[in-house]
């Protein structure tokens, strides 16, 4: 039988948000290299449940790499060692037989641990609620090309819109800055004609909420861009800064 591996896991266990928490070591034996990282954790949890232990709590949902629910800081990197993948799309063949894998939750004051590896990322929702929307009624389906948009702009807006809000940018950033996330959300609407009405109010409101949530400040290390499963680019942060300073220094729109 080929491709089965035995691993040692060092997993962060924390009973509740108030609990101090600590690392617990587990053996994960007979793991297929074709399993996803989450399936490997499922196998470990089956064993824990059979023994009557509390299974390891971790966030997951679609397991197709599109929902943004899975997280995990694996061996010092969000979503593990591969570029442009979520943890659910990370396969065990990315690890070596006999390897020790350290698994931690996202670490940020704005993302408190709920239990074990599961964190509360509602801060992102509150930032979105502050301005990440278009509030005019969309009405019926418009004719194709009724609103002309240059191809480069449409592509760039689409790229920004691929953000799945997983929070890997915050987890990767040495400052726990959420600027890649916020800038992607600001960009996708600021670039398109439908987002113009609230363009300058939006960026101010979202940045204010980001600051209120206690995220850190960007130092342009580029770690977020490198670790983003959707490869959101650092250009978005420059665009957000541009939008914000334009709004603050040259526009009438203000937030209340």
């Amino acid at each position: 039988m080929s491709g089965h591996m035995n691993l040692t896991l060092k997993v962060w266990r924390q009973k509740s948000p108030q609990d101090k928490g600590g690392f617990v070591t587990y053996k994960a034996d007979g793991i297929s290299e074709d399993m996803s990282f989450l399936e490997m954790l499922d196998v470990v949890n089956e064993g824990l449940i059979k023994k009557g232990d509390d299974p390891i709590h971790f966030d997951h949902d679609c397991r197709e790499g599109i929902c943004g629910m899975c997280s995990l800081y694996i061996n010092g990197r969000p979503h593990g060692p591969k570029r442009a993948v979520t943890t659910c799309q990370l396969h065990m063949r990315s690890f070596k037989d006999g390897e020790t894998i350290t698994i931690e939750p996202w670490r940020a004051a704005a993302f408190p641990v709920i239990k074990d590896l599961s964190t509360n990322r509602a801060a992102f929702e509150r930032i979105q609620q502050a301005g990440g929307y278009v509030s005019v009624n969309t009405g019926g389906v418009p004719d194709a090309n009724e609103i002309p948009i240059p191809k480069v702009i449409a592509d760039e807006a689409f790229n920004s819109a691929t953000c799945i809000q997983c929070g890997a940018c915050v987890a990767a950033c040495k400052n726990s800055s959420a600027m890649l996330f916020v800038s992607a959300k600001v960009s996708q609407l600021a670039l398109l004609p439908q987002g113009q009405q609230e363009r300058y109010r939006r960026v101010q409101a979202m940045v204010a909420q980001m600051d209120a949530e206690g995220f850190g400040n960007c130092t342009n290390t580029g770690a977020c861009e490198a670790e983003c499963p959707k490869e959101i680019s650092l250009t978005n942060i420059a665009r957000m800064n541009r939008e914000y300073f334009t709004a603050k220094f040259f526009k009438e729109e203000e937030i209340h």
Binding site: N75, R77, T221
Partner: peptide, 29 residues
């Protein structure tokens, strides 16, 4: 800014592989 950044992550990582995603000098300004 450094103080505010420290506050944004009160509990650090046990394993941190910064060199995998960013240059050394950018992380140690």
């Amino acid at each position: 800014l450094t103080i505010s950044n420290r506050k944004a992550r009160p509990i650090g990582y046990a394993v941190y592989n910064g060199s995998a995603n960013s240059p050394w000098n950018s992380r140690n300004m």
